[in-house]
Design a protein around this nucleic acid. Structure first.
Lengths: 168, 168
DNA sequence: AGCGCTGTGCATAACATGAATGCAGCTACC
DNA sequence: GGTAGCTGCATTCATGTTATGCACAGCGCT
């Protein structure tokens, strides 16, 4: 969350409400835009850490707004973020927890869990396909996000098969 | 985190320290075991919500311990968790954020980011292979976790190729 | 004397959601 | 023409979850 705001502010100074709109516009419908409240909280923290600074702007016939701009330290933090590679996928997986823990307590057996989960993944896959279908083909960013989600989902489905083989 | 503790307590009552050890033992080295402090915080909340209840147990030559056991409400919550399917992979992806936001600010270009990220993923893949190699073959749970991580990683690598095609 | 294990608790912070607040402009309706 | 209610702009606050790290305390071992 923090780096996203820094990146947007690097392009041009903005206030909270504007940032929310920018995020919604850049990442289309495929992306659940973060809560507006969280944006303000994060901006406050960034200011506390000296990465951004706020200027109050009075507006006629509008509530005042606080326009944030990047400081030198903020610019540095942003560069550092861009430089370091992003961490890979977590090994932690909630469904797998369920798969291991549930039978220990006699809740339900593994086959039931796996089959239900597979149906769920397949339904999600259908949703993604449908979402891709009604997305503006010019919006390459949204389409790539959807494609990424589908690749991950397929990996999960393959993994489900492996679990079924190994744990049966 | 909450459901994991509930599941373990469904098998048998236990105190915080024991739960930490159980988690470490069940999910082998492949799984970053959660912080012990967090376990106590979560147990406190579960108790506040009436899902578990604690009994103080005095021990000779040992600090006292609080043994938690499941309540009827806790059992219900656990069953509900087992019944609902687990959510799929998030569309939210940090690297993708970087890929979209970075060029807007003149930080660095996309090819550099993608190539660096690919090197990083490949290194992670090597690490996972190495980890799989030194994992006890009898520990099927750990091996499956590692395999799942590798499948996800491969999906990320494929996705990187797609991004490179589309955004160049 | 110091290290490591057992066992718990608290401080801090990030992250997320939801609701509340205030003001302005527009529309609908009697 | 007045007013009631909705929408858009802009921010703040209360609450809850997750995660890390440090502090504390007693005991056994070397």
């Amino acid at each position: 969350m923090r780096p996203f705001l820094l990146a947007l502010l690097a392009k041009e100074p903005a206030h909270g409400y504007e940032l929310k709109q920018a995020l919604e516009q850049i990442f289309g419908s495929a992306y659940p835009s973060p809560n507006i409240g969280q944006i303000y909280v994060t901006l406050g923290r960034l200011e506390k850490d000296g990465l951004v600074r706020a200027v109050d702007v009075e507006q006629p016939n509008r509530p005042n707004k606080k326009v944030y701009h990047l400081t030198a330290a903020g610019r540095e933090a942003l560069d550092a973020w861009a430089d370091e590679p992003t961490e890979g996928p977590r090994v932690r997986d909630e469904f797998f927890m369920k798969l291991v823990l549930a039978p220990m307590t006699g809740i339900s057996d593994r086959m039931t869990l796996i089959n239900r989960q597979r149906r769920h993944y397949l339904a999600l896959m259908r949703d993604l396909n449908e979402l891709a279908g009604r997305t503006d083909p010019a919006d390459r960013v949204a389409l790539l996000l959807i494609e990424g989600a589908m690749l991950h989902l397929q990996a999960d489905l393959d993994w489900l098969d492996r679990c079924q083989e190994d744990l049966s």
